[in-house]
Nucleic acid binder design. Structure first.
Lengths: 331, 331
DNA sequence: TTGTATGCGTTATCAT
DNA sequence: ATGATAACGCATACAA
C-alpha cells in the first residue's frame, strides 16, 4: 500500500502538501495540486483511516450498543441505524451489553476506545447516573427507548405504560372483562411498564388484576405459545388477550391454530407491534404500534446533530397509536 | 486518556516493558509486572485499539458487505454474523454495495483500508474475476451465497435452481398443472436461478412455460401483492402458485385475505423461506427452506478458520430441503 | 504557497 | 529482564 510519503516523493513535494490537497485545506498552487493528484492516481493511493483517526482522534464511525442481536426487533433496529448512518458516510460498530450493568459499560468503553464519533445506546441495565456520568465525557451519545433524567435532549422515548393502557382500554370498551395478559419478563423495564398499562386500564374500570390471568414469558414466539397455553389451562373462559410483544402474539397464534380456536369469534386479541408481524397473521391483529424503526432513525438523526455540535436538539416525541384491525370483537 | 507512556513513567519503566506485560510477551520480573499493573490500574489505562492497529496492521474487526439493509432477510443475516463474530471477540463493520460492481468494490476497499482482519461478502454485482483478483490480496474473505470458480473453499453456496425445481415438482406431483410463478427481479442472480428451477420442473413434466403465468416483482411484500394481483387478472383459474420469496408470499396472502380466497381450497402455494415468515401465515405454507441464518453462521466460521491461517477449510454444503405444511392440496 | 518537525499510541528490533 | 528507538501513516503548528 502506497502511503502519503510515496505520493509526496513521486510528486516532488512534502508530505504536508499532500495532506493539504487531500483535505482541501490551506492554499495550494494549481500546478502542484495537479501533480499530487496525478501521483495519487498513479500509485492508486488511498489514505489510511487508521492513521487519520490516530492523528485526529475521530474515526468516522459510530457505535451502537444493544442487549441482544436475536429477533426481528433488534435486526430491524440495527438495519435502520445502519442505513441512516450510511447516509452520513459513517460506519457502524455494533456491540452487545449482555444484560448486565458492567458488560454494558464495558461495551461502551470498547467503543469509545475505538474513537467512535458518537454512540447510540439501547442499554437496559446501566443506571441513569452512569449515563449522566458518561455525558460528562466528550463522546456525544443518545439513549434509545429510555428516559433519562437530565438527559432529555438525548433520549428517544416512548410511553409504554400509556400504550399498554390504551390497548387494554380498547378491549374494555368493546365489553371485555376477562382479559388475559401475556407479559414479557418483568425484570425488563419496558415489560414492566407495559404490564403497568394493563393494571392501570383495569383499575380505571374498577377491576382488580387476577394473577391467574397473567403469564410472564420470554419475549419470543415460543414464550408466547407457552404463556397462552398456561393461561388457557387456568382460565379457559377468557374473552380477550393483551399481548405485550408481536413475537409472543405469533406464538399465541400457533396455539390458536393448533387448537382450532377462532379469532375474534372465540377470543379477541390486541398486541404490541414493531415490525408489522401482526399484520401477517390472519385475522390481522389490532395493535398499539411501537415504532422502533422510526425511533431508531430518529436516534441516528439526533446523534448526527449532536456530532455536528448543534445545541438544543429536540428529539421527536413518539406517541402511542392504536391500529385497529380485525382481531377484536364487541361483546 | 492515559497512554502507555504515562503508565511507563508512573511505574518507572520503559514503554517497551509496559507493552510486554500488556501482551504477555517476553520475560518480565514479577515485581515489575506488578508495578506496571498497579500503574495501569491507577491511571485507569486502556490501550488504544487504533494505535495498535496502525502498528500491527490488524484491527480486530471483520467487514461485511451486503447489497441492502432492508427487510427481514438482511437483518437476520447481519444479526447472525454479528453474533457469531462476537464470540471471536471481533467487531463487525457493515458496508453496503449499492447494486453495482463499482460500489461493491468501493465498499470492499473502504473495509480493507480500515485493516479488517477478514471480509464476508454478500455481493451480487462484482464479477467472479474481481473476486479472484481480491483473493490474491492478503485479506482473507468468504463469499456468501455465491459460487465462485476457483474459490470453492471460500464459497458458502446453495443450489437455488434445485430448490426451486423441488418446490415446483412437489406441486406437480400433487396434480397441479396450471402453476403461477411470482418471481424476483430477474436481473438478480438468485432470482434468475429460482426461476430456472420453475422452468426445469415444468419441462421435466413436458410442460412449456406460459409467460402469462409468471410475474416479476420486487422481493418484498408489496411486490408479492401486486404480482399476485396481476397474475389473477390474467389467469383466474390457476390452481397453484410458486413464490420465490417469503416476503412476496406474505404479500400474496394480503391479496388472498382481501379477496376471501381460501387456501389451500381455492389455491395452493409453495414458497421459498428464510426467516420463517411462512410459518406465521394461516395456513402455514409449505416451503423450500433457504437457510440464510445457518449459511451466515457458517460463513463466519469459515472466515474465522481462514483468519487463523487454517488450510483446506471445507465449507459445509447446504442442501435444499422441502418443509411440507398445509398450503398445498392434492387435486 | 510550501516545507520541517513533532505528535498520536502502539509494536518491534536492537542493544544492553 | 529491560531500555532506546525506529517505524506505522497521517495532521498540524510553526517556519520559511
Amino acid at each position: 500500500m502506497a502511503s502519503i510519503k510515496d505520493v509526496a516523493e513521486l510528486a516532488g513535494v512534502s508530505k504536508a502538501t499532500v495532506s493539504r490537497v487531500l483535505n482541501n485545506t490551506g492554499q495550494i498552487r494549481e500546478g502542484t495540486r495537479a501533480r499530487v493528484h496525478k501521483a495519487m492516481e498513479k500509485l492508486n493511493y488511498r489514505p489510511s483511516p487508521l492513521a487519520k483517526s490516530l492523528a485526529t482522534s475521530s474515526s468516522n464511525t459510530v457505535g451502537l450498543v444493544v442487549t441482544s442481536y436475536r429477533g426481528h426487533f433488534y435486526s430491524e433496529l440495527m438495519a435502520e441505524v445502519q442505513e441512516e448512518m450510511e447516509v452520513q458516510g459513517k460506519f457502524l460498530l455494533v456491540s452487545r451489553g449482555k444484560r448486565s450493568r458492567s458488560s454494558e459499560q464495558e461495551a461502551i468503553q470498547r467503543l469509545t476506545d475505538m474513537c467512535c464519533d458518537g454512540l447510540i445506546l439501547h442499554t437496559r441495565n446501566m443506571f441513569d447516573e452512569d449515563l449522566v456520568d458518561l455525558s460528562k465525557g466528550s463522546t456525544p451519545f443518545v439513549v434509545l427507548d429510555r428516559s433519562v433524567k437530565d438527559l432529555e435532549d438525548r433520549s428517544i422515548v416512548y410511553d409504554h405504560t400509556l400504550a399498554g393502557k390504551m390497548a387494554v382500554e380498547h378491549l374494555l370498551e368493546k365489553g371485555h372483562r376477562k382479559i388475559a395478559c401475556i407479559a414479557g419478563p418483568r425484570s425488563r423495564m419496558t415489560a414492566a411498564l407495559r404490564f403497568d398499562g394493563y393494571v392501570q386500564a383495569l383499575e380505571s374500570y374498577g377491576i382488580s388484576v387476577d394473577e391467574s390471568l397473567v403469564a410472564e414469558a420470554d419475549y419470543d414466539r415460543l414464550g408466547g405459545y407457552r404463556a397462552m397455553k398456561d393461561i388457557l389451562e387456568r382460565q379457559p373462559d377468557i374473552t380477550a388477550v393483551y399481548s405485550c410483544s408481536e413475537e409472543m402474539t405469533v406464538g399465541a397464534f400457533d396455539l390458536f391454530r393448533e387448537r382450532g380456536i377462532n379469532l375474534p369469534g372465540d377470543i379477541s386479541i390486541i398486541s404490541f407491534d414493531s415490525v408489522s408481524l401482526c399484520t401477517m397473521l390472519t385475522p390481522q391483529v389490532s395493535t398499539v404500534h411501537f415504532p422502533i424503526k422510526e425511533m431508531a432513525a430518529e436516534s441516528a438523526r439526533v446523534l448526527t446533530a449532536l456530532m455536528h455540535g448543534e445545541q438544543d436538539v429536540q428529539p421527536q416525541r413518539f406517541i402511542p397509536e392504536l391500529r385497529l384491525r380485525d382481531s377484536v370483537r364487541e361483546i
